[in-house]
Amino acid sequence: MKIKITTKELKSDFAKEVKERSGIDVKKCYQCGKCTAGCPVAYEMDYMPNQIIRFVQLGLRHEALTSRTIWLCASCITCSTRCPKEVKIAELMDVLREMALEEGVANPKEKNITTFHKAFLNSVKKHGRISEFWMLSEYKRKRPKTALQDIEIGPQLMLKGKLSLTPHDIKGKKSIKRIFEKFK
């Protein structure tokens, strides 16, 4: 981790922008590290959760938004639950992910995760509900390297009648389309 902090970062409005978008005030964090201590996925992350907050506190936008950490957060909300200062850390990760996607800077190493989210939402957009089969095939198509992973599970699911080829379409698909249109 080689980061140089200059007045350019320190003067930036990153923390303010995060607060305006989400209501989360990172100033409240006193960096005790309890979020990191209890994070079940911390061992996989490039930066610890408390460091992500520190990035926001100090205006290190690039470091925060391009981190793998924000994608690896499993949204288990253990951090926010135990935070002594009641900083909503898990919710902060949501905002940072949203901003990373908007700015097109999401870390390519976690493409599996972003692709999964996209495939999932595409299915919702199309049918109003998840069609697990079609969602999975989109994901596997776009992440061919994962094609062989869990190869045995799909057929087993189908045998048990738990993976249907017929999508569950809702009647109000139009209304779902409208929601997706409004909140692109």
């Binding site: 981790m1 005790c32 990191t36 610890m48 460091q51």
Partner: peptide, 8 residues
């Protein structure tokens, strides 16, 4: 955690 090394 040890925030000085960034570790759990």
């Amino acid at each position: 955690a040890d925030t000085l090394t960034g570790s759990v």
